[in-house]
């Protein structure tokens, strides 16, 4: 998935770098709303989670396995702005420490896997969440479709960039069909893993899933002893006073 150096010409690389810089700047502002002043430690740990879970191999079909890319999952879990920051940080570390993805292509990779994948995944999730019946199943379905769409759309955006500034003279149609086809399959795997992970988090700590906040409020209206068994609720206002 990571675009290496030399795939796209200088103008396209510079263009995507500018897009990525603008997107990350926006995300830095937006993330403050999602995580208030806890931005750095929380986003850092979430990025460490994304990084670790990308190393985990999930069986997809007999003999083959895939791993999560995580844009849509992270967006549903911690919110889209923080997700963009997490993906950016993971991509930076992969490029700088593991030479995975080109150094001049960092902007391109952030645009594709940070901005496009998170944007499409979260956009589709929000749209479907509004349409589908509220509840666990609707939420999981919306997240699954978002995760599924995020992969082939990012791949097609790459094909578009390759058409604009690719170094080879290929018929775009055939590249689009090949890339799109392969990434539809990868998207199915991404959707399955996203739903499995999200379902697990929803079962244990639904309050941590940002994309499920509306469900949280709905249950709060009916008082139950459900939250009583949990050890002390996370001290949300405390940090402000501690400063």
């Amino acid at each position: 998935m990571h675009v290496p150096d030399g795939y796209l010409d200088a103008a396209t690389t510079a263009g995507t770098a500018a897009v990525a810089a603008a997107g990350v700047a926006l995300a830095l502002r937006g993330a403050r709303r999602e995580l208030d002043e806890r931005t750095a430690p929380m986003a850092g740990l979430t990025a460490a989670f994304v990084f670790a879970v990308q190393m985990m191999n999930f069986p997809v079909a007999y003999g083959t396995s895939g791993h999560l890319i995580g844009g849509a999952l992270t967006a549903v879990l911690v919110g889209p702005w923080t997700a963009v920051l997490c993906m950016t940080v993971v991509l930076l570390v992969q490029a700088l420490v593991f030479a995975d993805g080109g150094l001049t292509a960092v902007g391109t990779n952030v645009t594709l896997m940070g901005l496009v994948a998170v944007g499409v995944g979260y956009g589709a999730f929000r749209l479907l969440r509004a349409v589908l019946p509220a509840g666990r199943t609707g939420l999981l379905a919306a997240a699954g479709v978002g995760a599924f769409l995020s992969v082939p759309v990012a791949a097609l955006v790459f094909v578009g960039l390759f058409g604009l500034g690719g170094v080879a003279d290929v018929s775009l149609g055939s590249v689009a069909v090949a890339m799109g086809g392969v990434h539809l399959l990868i998207g199915l795997g991404e959707a399955a893993i996203t739903v499995a992970v999200l379902g697990a988090v929803l079962a244990v700590r639904p309050d941590l899933v940002r994309g499920a906040r509306h469900l949280q409020r709905a249950t709060a209206l009916a008082p139950r002893s459900e939250t009583a068994g949990r050890p002390a609720a996370p001290a949300a206002p405390a940090p402000v006073e501690a400063r």
């Binding site: 979430t46 670790a52 985990m56 893993i193 499995a196 988090v201």
Partner: peptide, 11 residues
């Protein structure tokens, strides 16, 4: 899935 989920919660 639950393994990755609990990894997220712990993180």
């Amino acid at each position: 899935g639950p393994a990755a989920g609990s990894l997220f919660i712990r993180s």
